[in-house]
Amino acid sequence: MSNQQRKLTISGPKALQEEAFTTPEAAPGRVVVDITYTGICGTDVHGWADGSMLPPAVFGHEWTGTVSAVGDGVTDVAPGDRVVGGVGPACGTCPQCRGGHAKQCDTVFAEANGVDSAAPTYGAFATQVHVSSRRVIPVPDALSDIEAALVEPAAVTFHAVRRAGIVPGEIGVVVGAGPIGLLTAQNARNAGLGRVIISEPVEARRRVATGLGFTDVVHPDDVTDLITEATGGVGADVVFECAGVASLLQPSATMVRRGGTLSLLGFPLTESTVSYADWQQRELTVIGSLAYNHDDFVGVMRVIADKRIDVTPLHTGTMGLDHLADILSELDSGSSDHAKVLIDPTLT
């Protein structure tokens, strides 16, 4: 790749700024990665529309590429290695780790949110990134580049399903069949759900879910009747809220049986109104889930390599950097049929 690089960053509400830069020399403990693909996440869309809500490293956080240079002290990857952007292992020195809570490592949480001290100054809507070696995770040979590009959202859902503590044979509901919902449904099926019900208003997304082998895929208008039929009126054992729509939080909770679990993956940007008394009376377990740990990346890549989940049907388009603003606008409109669009910086 040429030493002349380019990157796109957010410069204001629905505004992008393009900058040219020269390939940096890999600093100690850091690596230079030539970007192959960067996925567009709902967070990217919201951040672009808002203009100021995202740390710079988060705009373009779903990426895969090839290491082109490593700095002093880097021993876990080498030039030529394919990698995905992720988070490092628990640091062992932060307050959470010292308190025995390595799964909630402060360093990893900061990395996942792009606010750690080593966070890059821009995301991977670029031809190249220069990042801490903690942020790169080698990709197994069994994964294609397209599969590697979808590892990050798959890790988000792998993490949430692990936190939900599914008991084999339980009945679950997934609210929303966008990329996060479809990946959640597949990981939950692997975790042992006996029946997976998917609620989704968009017909095109329902077709993708059916193509992934799910048979209980319905419009939201029909989901209550299906849950009643499947559970004898008791309610679902676990409901995964993946839509991120504030107004759906309480309706999602009402699908859960007394003593069941509500898992929150969607991230609404406005406050939600819920019935505290309803949740308390029905003794719901509510589990928040945000981002992932290092072991979620390792685990989900094994699952993808073993063909236990299929991420490729989520990929609905590939575009170059020059088309990023257009596709962000389309996705923000709410009328796009796209699931996951990948940006290939080599395309014009």
Rank of each mutant, 00 (worst) to 15 (best):
T9R: 13
G12A: 09
P13K: 02
E19Y: 03
R30H: 15
D34V: 10
T36C: 10
Y37C: 07
Y37E: 09
G39N: 06
G42M: 05
G51S: 10
P55F: 14
V58G: 04
G60Q: 11
E62I: 06
T64Q: 13
V67M: 12
S68A: 14
S68E: 06
V70C: 09
T75V: 13
T75Y: 09
V77L: 12
G80D: 11
D81G: 15
R82C: 11
G86F: 11
T93D: 09
R98H: 07
G100Y: 07
C105L: 02
N113Y: 08
G114R: 07
P120L: 06
T121M: 15
T121G: 14
G123P: 10
G123N: 12
A126N: 11
R135F: 04
P140N: 06
L143C: 05
I146H: 08
E147Q: 15
E152A: 08
P153T: 06
A154T: 11
F158W: 08
F158Q: 14
G176D: 03
P179Q: 06
G181A: 02
T184W: 03
T184L: 09
R189V: 02
N190D: 01
G194L: 00
R195A: 02
S199W: 01
R206S: 04
F214N: 05
T224N: 14
R258K: 15
F267D: 08
P268D: 13
E271G: 07
E271W: 06
T273F: 00
S275D: 14
A277V: 01
W279G: 01
R282Y: 02
T285L: 10
S289V: 11
L290D: 12
L290F: 14
V298C: 03
V298Y: 05
M301N: 04
A305T: 02
T316Q: 00
G317D: 00
M319P: 00
L324Q: 05
I327M: 06
E330H: 09
S333E: 06
H338N: 10
A339V: 13
P345I: 11
